[in-house]
Amino acid sequence: MQSAAESEVRHLDKWSFDMDLAAISAFVAVGDKGGFRAAAAALGITSAGVSKAVSRLETKLGVMLVARTTRSVRLTAAGSVFHVRCKAILADLDQAARDAAEGSAQPQGQLVISLPRVFGRMRVLPIIADYTKQYPEVEIEVRLSDRLSDLVVEGVDLAIRIGDLPDSSLIATRIGQTGFVMCGSPEYLATMGIPAHPDDLNRHSVVGYVAPDTAVRFTYRFLIDGAIKTVSLPSRLNVDDGEALVGAGTRSVGLVMANEYLMEQQIAEGSLVCGLREFETPPVPISVVQLPTKNPSPAARALVAMLRRRLAG
């Protein structure tokens, strides 16, 4: 059998009225704090303002929610039931607002990520480590490979690609950029000389790079007289691994051209010296790609956002 308080509140479920969130918030604060003065302090308004808001709510509902005496304030039986329901509603609204502001619910679940091997290890894995600390409910599988992964066949959620992207159905988000530089060891340059122009490269040894998935050789491009031009350079040694390419350069096998991030440590240490800087082509984009979907997972959205923040510079 229902109590009188529950009966009074039941008709509120059928009541149609404009939601007065300010009044409801004031009423919930009174119930939580045990009085108008404490509720006013918590809300940052006057006690009179709280009292008027609660009275307005009682008038609209036609139910006494708060029993007032000169010495105390307490919720009525109906007010106690209504307080529980309103507090839950306000909590739901607050969470909904947080979700909307963040663009998603709390990230959770699994992510499979494909990364270029060296770039992934040097630049992305530290970011992923921070991501896992911030979102402990997300389980991540990282696949390091210089081969372009097939997102559908291999079940990959996100993949990072370096360079201009071909037209495809994949959704791409630019998260940074990188430039190509040509370097040589101090010993090599002391012996062969420092090239002053791309035309000088014909008398130099060059270590070539071959794409591991297509076996296509790297194309050397330079900005000459305001236009990007391709220079054909024969190479006696070709490798399909970025670290092997850099290693050959530090061992004075020949000049090497690669993304600057591959050689930043060697450049800083002085084991490689860059040349032809004024002929460098514009940086190429670094992008994260994913399959088209109307609703990417919260975990994927959060990681893409973090990558953009950390790699944009």
Rank of each mutant, 00 (worst) to 15 (best):
V256L: 03
F82Q: 03
K33C: 12
S149I: 01
N295P: 00
Q2G: 00
D225Q: 03
V142P: 04
L307E: 05
A190F: 04
V30D: 03
S16V: 14
R10V: 11
P298F: 09
A91C: 04
E137V: 00
A312V: 09
G275F: 04
F82K: 03
P282N: 09
V118P: 00
G44Y: 07
P282R: 13
I194E: 14
V288F: 04
R56D: 15
V289C: 15
G176L: 11
G254H: 10
V273S: 05
V118R: 11
S168M: 01
V73F: 08
A172D: 09
G120K: 02
E102L: 14
A88D: 10
A300F: 06
V210R: 14
P116S: 12
K14L: 15
V156G: 03
Y261S: 10
S72E: 14
A42W: 00
G184P: 05
L151E: 11
A302D: 05
R310S: 08
V207I: 09
S47D: 10
A96C: 07
A26H: 02
D13L: 15
R277W: 00
V181E: 13
P116H: 07
G313D: 09
F82I: 06
E8K: 09
A227V: 15
R56H: 08
A48N: 13
A211E: 14
V152T: 14
A78S: 15
H83W: 13
S55N: 13
G103P: 09
S232Q: 08
S168P: 00
L255K: 03
R37T: 12
M263I: 11
